[in-house]
Nucleic acid binder design. Structure first.
Lengths: 210, 210
DNA sequence: ACTTTAAATTCTGAATTCAGAATGTAGAGT
DNA sequence: ACTCTACATTCTGAATTCAGAATTTAAAGT
């Protein structure tokens, strides 16, 4: 038996992030450390470590002497963050092993298909898996780590974002086009499509932000 | 009088980072929290916050129950991080206002010149300023923030890196080429040169790592 | 002398406590 | 009624304390 002894701060991080993503906490509001610590049944020390980490990633803001605040979801944040991820992933894709990529295509298409069959929430998770599978042969591990951190920020949006069936279908289409480009060994096109995959269309932005 | 009341954790962060970059601490070794806290005259709590931040940025590693370790400078880290910064800066450059860029050229060239006149240590600082000036009109603030964080990691290397006069001269040349491309409104070339500026040549790598 | 095991020490992770900043409230003065 | 100030309360930032994990030291056995 492998007894789990994960540091408390990590467990807290996961739980807090889940709550924030789930929308339990009012957006744009202060987080009361004492209250939250009590709820979670832990002390403020590891909680603060977890919150500080999320602040550094850009999910929260830490105002001196005012505490942690859940940053509001803004159009700007979407407009800024998604393209960054697009650029990073395209860059990562170019460092991937083309042979491994080609071998991944069946799995990629399988995942693309599955996105259509599940509920919107699960779709976001599968979308993640798709991108992980795509970039798994990128030797620049630091780059992959960076991409992962950026995605944490946008995960908050996927609730609003992937609830649109249209959006899921668009993602599916794009995923298949990228897979096709890979099979044809056209990495320029694949990278271009990948950037496009991280481009939010204005219509959806209006839909989400009004 | 504006009394300075910067959070202790931030002051500690700066001081610790300076020490690490300066090479005060043996690379690849554990950091003794109690000892360092005593040296700095603070308690372990804010020190840990500072260290945790540096760990998240990738300067330190935090091993559960083993504490913080100063990551060794590795060839891999250079090979992985520099290209990331190159890709991010090139991406940022494309979002800059071409008019503002053109107006920056005199200042950019002045900074490029000054790199030649100062000691290698100061050269690194000026190099930073040059890149800041270049990208100041990029509207994607999150991207700029990300670039800055990545550079923190790399700063440790500049001691070893910029001590090479040859390297400084190469940087100066490249900076001027980028400025020239901007004046000619050839942003493709400018971006290409910028990526090149973040490409470490194998000769220098051998020189630094043996 | 060398290995193994047990005790002692050191150090990290987390809880608790304390100090001071920010906020909220009540009362005095206009 | 409204504003300003003084006081009380709440909350964050930091220090201190405590528990338990990892490491080191010492001793026993081969």
């Amino acid at each position: 038996m492998t007894i789990t002894r994960r540091p408390l701060r990590e467990q807290i991080r996961d739980e807090v992030l889940t709550r924030l993503v789930r929308g339990d906490h009012p957006v744009g509001e202060r987080i009361n450390e004492g209250e939250l610590a009590d709820e979670l049944g832990v002390s403020r020390t590891p909680l603060r470590e977890a919150l500080a980490g999320l602040a550094q990633e850009g999910v929260l803001e830490l105002r001196p002497n005012r505490g942690f605040w859940l940053l509001p979801l803004t159009v700007d944040e979407v407009k800024e963050t998604y393209p960054i991820i697009g650029a990073l992933e395209a860059f990562a894709l170019r460092q991937c092993d083309i042979q491994v990529l080609a071998e991944s295509v069946p799995r990629l298409n399988e995942l693309a298909q599955r996105m259509l069959d599940v509920d919107p929430l699960e779709a976001g998770r599968i979308d993640d898996q798709w991108h992980d599978e795509l970039l798994k042969s990128c030797p620049n591990k630091r780059l992959l780590q960076l991409i992962k951190a950026q995605k944490t920020v946008v995960h908050r949006y996927e609730f609003a974002y992937f609830t649109s069936r249209k959006r899921i279908m668009r993602a599916e289409t794009e995923h298949r086009l990228i897979a096709k480009a890979i099979l044809e060994r056209d990495m320029d096109r694949a990278a271009g499509e990948l950037v496009g995959n991280w481009t939010v269309d204005p219509g959806v932005l209006r839909e989400v932000f009004g």
